[in-house]
Every structure is written in C-alpha cells, then in structure tokens.
Design a protein around this nucleic acid. Structure first.
Lengths: 186, 186
DNA sequence: GCTACTTTACCGATCGGTCGGTATCCAAGA
DNA sequence: TCTTGGATACCGACCGATCGGTAAAGTAGC
C-alpha cells in the first residue's frame, strides 16, 4: 500500500464527527485510528504534530467548508432574504437538523492551545463578517449590520445547545427560520 | 482526621470551575485531587461512584444554586422588569462577566452518560420554566411566554460561546441588558 | 530500487479505580 | 475522670488499562 488508503478530507470528516460528539479531550488516538482505519503510527505519519495537529487540520477543513459552501450562498446574486434562507438551509444540513454540535462551541474551552483558540476566533470572525456583509447589502448601516450578524451567530449557537440538551430540534429549526428576518431589513 | 478538611460545597465549587474550563473528559482525578487538596482515594471515599458521581453532584450543586439564587429573584415581589434585571445581574456574576462557560453547554456532549443528560435536561427545563413564569406574569400568553423564555436561554448560551471564542465580554453583556425586554411586555 | 505510505511492536506516563491501613473524634463503660 | 472502642475521614501504594507518541520494519506502486 504505497497509495493513501483514505483521503485527507475523508479522514478529517471522520475526525470532525468524533470531535463534535466527544470534545477534544474526549477523543483518543485509538478512536481516531479505529474510525479512520489507519493505525496510530500512520496518523503520525500524516500529522506529525499528533492530536493537536489533527484538531487544527479539522478546524481548517471546517473553515474551508464554510468558505466553499456557506459564504458563496450569502454572496450569490438575488434578493438578500432569499440568500439568507438558502444559508439557513445549508446550516441546517451542516448541523444535521440540530443533532450535531458546533465544533466552534465544543473545541473552544479555555483549556485548549493558543493556536486552536486563534483558529476558532478567525473562523468565527469570518462567519460574522459574511453575515454582516449580507445585512449591509440589504440596507442596514454597518454598525447595525455587524450587531445583527453577531446576534444571528449567537442564536444559532445557543439554539444548538438548547436543542442538544432538550433533545428537541425545534429551537434550532425555529432559529433558522428567523434568520432572514434577522439579517435583512424587512 | 475525623473532621472533613473541605466541605462538600467548597469541593463541588472547585470541581465546577475545573469542569467548565476543561470539560468532563478534560478533567482527571489527579487534577481534582490537587485542586481540592484531597487524595484520589479520599475522593472515592466521598464519591464512591468516582468521576461520574462527582460530575452528577456538581450538576446538582449548580441546580441548587439556581434554585436558591436565581429563581427567588425571578419570583420576588416587584415589577417584572426589575426582577428580570436583577436576574441578569445574578447571571452576570455566575458567569463572571462571560469569562466562564456554562456547565450545561460544556457537559452536554452526546458522549456523556444518560443520567448526566437527564440531569442537564431537568435543570434546563427548570430554568426555562422560571423565565416563562415571569414572562406570563408580565402579561404574555402562555405559549408566547414559553417561547420568550427559550429565546432568552438561547441568547444567553449563545452569547457565552461568542464571548468565549472572541475573547470579548461585550456580546454577553449586551445579551443580559436585553433580558428585561425579552421576558416582559413593554 | 527508490519513494510513499502503512504497520508491528514498543515506550514511559497517566488514566480511573482499589486496597490496607492510619489519624482523629466522640461516646459509652468503669 | 480516665479508658477504650467504634465510626469517620483521610492517605500511600498499588492495580491493569489506556494514554499520546516513537522507531524500525515491511509493502505497494512508480
């Protein structure tokens, strides 16, 4: 087997699922090894920095996914409300109807490395900026647009927590439905 | 040493701080032992069920704190808006201006035990119910009151995530300021 | 045969958890 | 009042398992 047995992106998708389910400290290299079908030593060949590098790569992969899937939908032509609704649909799929947690939430505990925290902060800023751009385009003044964007992220993150704890997807779904109203002037 | 060297409540306060900082899997018995000044074996004397029992006891302790501190403020006599503002102040102190995470968020990962999840769900239902009672009292119909209460919890949880990731307490503070508007008819 | 990749086998450290004690306190018996 | 014995609370030492991490030996494809 001189060829890769699993692609980087498939591997990181698997890692993402593990991390958002058990948290950073809750996932061991053995679990990662079993879930990806690669021996521990092979994981170290691909990610010499070990677990922390896998976490960082997972974060980068999620960031790329947002760049490629969510942000284009927000920037596409068409009425802002329609775009916001499309973004909500994409987010609904990403979080699997509220059944999956947000990595940004799960991996952001103060115990983490500075690099991890930096990556999360950058990703969240990009997310807020993308929301804010849409809000401005729909007519809100910059300051109000930024605040609306933060508010939207707050409600998405919060509703994910609530849906997870109550084992009920309704709060998450309701929040997504509010997204167009939140990000645009009516 | 027939007398306890540390009270249950002080011990659980210490555990709470550790858990909300590092997550359930991120806290080892050695850390717990060092932080409380009790040897591992002594922790097992106090909590024969080990780490999981300590987590459950910590959750129960937080639940009691809410019952004794937050809920009375919500039920006290006086205008509902004043009471909501008082509750916001109490929450601000509990989350140390957004610097601390919410245990309900941190300990609610799907990987946890069923009992843990049940405890978290019960606690969150109690929180929502207390908010909803205030909202009803201020004049909202039951369904709207329940929804306003959920919305309030969503925003508090979400703003804690955002403030943590951005390392900026502003979103949390702003959210608390909105609390009276959210829970009462103007 | 060289390179890219994976595997087997191993390391010391730490994990959650247990065991046999020991120190302290309090209450009952003389 | 003094002794003593049991309950309470704690601790040092240890357990097997698993942790994150490494070195060296394959193995497949160019």
């Amino acid at each position: 087997m001189a060829r890769q047995t699993i692609s980087d992106s498939a591997l990181l998708d698997t890692a993402l699922d593990l991390f958002r389910t058990h948290g950073a400290e809750g996932v061991s290299l053995s679990q990662l090894s079993q879930a990806t079908g690669l021996e521990k030593a092979s994981l170290y060949y691909r990610f010499p920095g070990g677990k922390e590098e896998i976490i960082l790569a997972t974060l980068a992969s999620v960031g790329q996914w947002f760049e490629n899937q969510l942000f284009p939908a927000l920037r596409s032509p068409g009425p802002p409300r329609k775009r916001a609704a499309k973004a909500a649909e994409i987010l609904r799929a990403f979080y699997q109807d509220g059944a999956r947690s947000c990595v940004t939430d799960v991996l952001s505990l103060p115990g983490g490395s500075p690099q991890r925290h930096q990556a999360l902060q950058t990703a969240m800023e990009a997310w807020i900026a993308a929301f804010a751009a849409l809000a401005r385009e729909s007519g809100l003044p910059p300051a109000a647009a930024r605040q609306a964007a933060e508010e939207a992220v707050i409600r998405i993150e919060g509703s994910l927590v609530l849906s997870r704890v109550l084992a009920n997807p309704a709060p998450f779904h309701r929040t997504l439905k509010q997204l167009p109203d939140l990000l645009t002037t009516r």
